[in-house]
Computed example of a mutant assay.
Amino acid sequence: MTIRIPSGNTTLLQSQVAEILVAPLAQESTFLAAGPQIFDTNDQLRIPRVASGVTAGFYGPGEQISDGNVSFDEVTLLPSTLKSLKVLTRYSSELARQSVVALDATLKTTVVTNVAETLDALLWDGPGTSNTIKGIFRQSGIATGTLDLTDADSLIDGMATAQGNHVKPTHWVMTAASFAKLRKLKVGTDDARYIFDPSTIQNGSAFQLFGLPVIITDNIPAVSTKNRVALVDFSKVAVARDLDAEVKILDQTWGDYDTVGIRVVTRYDVGLLQAKAVTVLTEA
């Protein structure tokens, strides 16, 4: 008589499914966490700014003072034509009841996260076509410079460009690959010491270069295979927020299918209070 054992009869064994759902690895949302100015409004937002001021001069007693004219313009965000970012997913009631995880809560979290990832990419580098978000790297009038990932002096030149425009950058923005190339720079061919001290380049869980925090994101993609690094003054970045990931559970819409829907809608816009607040360095 042969004794049946579990290893030879897997078909007869119960399976146990862990009551967790492992999410895919995804790009972290970084733009809003960097600290731009956020304005909550559901109407078009107009932010006035002084385009040019006046110049003072020296005058003697009784001399007529020349007139000076101050000119104004404005930054306009959330025009009525700007589209919203939306997503919709459906699942059957049977799946919800039979799932080993809390499916509705899990899907809500997943969908909101996916929308946040898309929004983050658009705020950085959105094309702005067909009434969509134009990211800060696509804004007109931003400063530019040359990047050389083999020479840290190009970063110093970028800082000089920003400072020459009277900008005080708050963050570096670059991909992980660009940051790694900079971290690997050595003092010389015969000196294996790193240019950037590893003990100071990472302050806790945050990275720094030349005293400024480094934002690591895939959302500053290369242009024509040429890598880019940016300097940004986030105090001069304005974000208009109409809806912040509004979640709706649609439990009646597809009642004839016994199906539940989750809809997430958000509507944002971004602009620069001063165009030179962004300096983009591109490889030659």
Results as ranks from 00 to 15, higher is better:
F31G: 02
D40Q: 10
S15V: 01
Q37Y: 04
V17H: 07
Q16Y: 02
P36Q: 04
Q16I: 08
Q44R: 00
F39Y: 14
Q44V: 01
Q27V: 00
Q44P: 01
V17M: 13
T30F: 00
A23E: 14
F31R: 05
T30M: 06
T41W: 05
P36G: 09
Q16L: 00
F39R: 08
Q27Y: 00
P24C: 08
P24H: 10
L21N: 03
I38T: 10
D40S: 15
I38P: 01
E19I: 03
E19D: 14
G35P: 02
Q37T: 14
E28C: 01
Q16P: 00
L25F: 10
F31Q: 12
A18C: 06
Q27N: 04
I38V: 15
L13M: 15
V17W: 10
S29G: 11
N42D: 15
L13H: 06
A23G: 11
L21Q: 08
E19L: 08
Q44L: 00
A18Q: 15
V17Q: 13
G35D: 06
Q37N: 15
L25D: 10
Q16S: 04
D43R: 13
D43L: 13
E28N: 06
L13P: 10
V22M: 07
P24M: 09
V22W: 05
I38D: 06
D43A: 15
L13G: 09
A26E: 14
L32M: 12
A23I: 06
S15E: 01
N42Y: 08
L21K: 12
T30R: 07
Q14R: 14
L32C: 03
F31I: 05
A33E: 09
I20L: 14
Q44T: 03
F39A: 14
A34K: 01
S29Y: 05
T41E: 08
V22P: 00
E19W: 00
P36F: 07
G35T: 07
L25Y: 11
S29R: 11
L32R: 05
A18R: 12
S15K: 09
I20P: 02
N42L: 04
I38L: 12
A26R: 14
F31V: 09
F39C: 11
L32G: 02
P36R: 04
Q14V: 03
L32Q: 01
N42F: 06
D43C: 02
Q37S: 12
L21S: 10
G35I: 05
A34W: 02
N42C: 03
L21G: 11
Q14P: 01
A26D: 11
P24D: 07
E28L: 12
P24T: 05
A18S: 09
S15Q: 04
N42H: 04
L21Y: 13
I38W: 06
L25S: 06
G35N: 08
L32S: 04
Q27H: 07
F31P: 07
L13D: 11
A33T: 04
D43T: 10
Q27S: 08
A26V: 06
V22F: 02
L21D: 12
A23Y: 12
S29N: 13
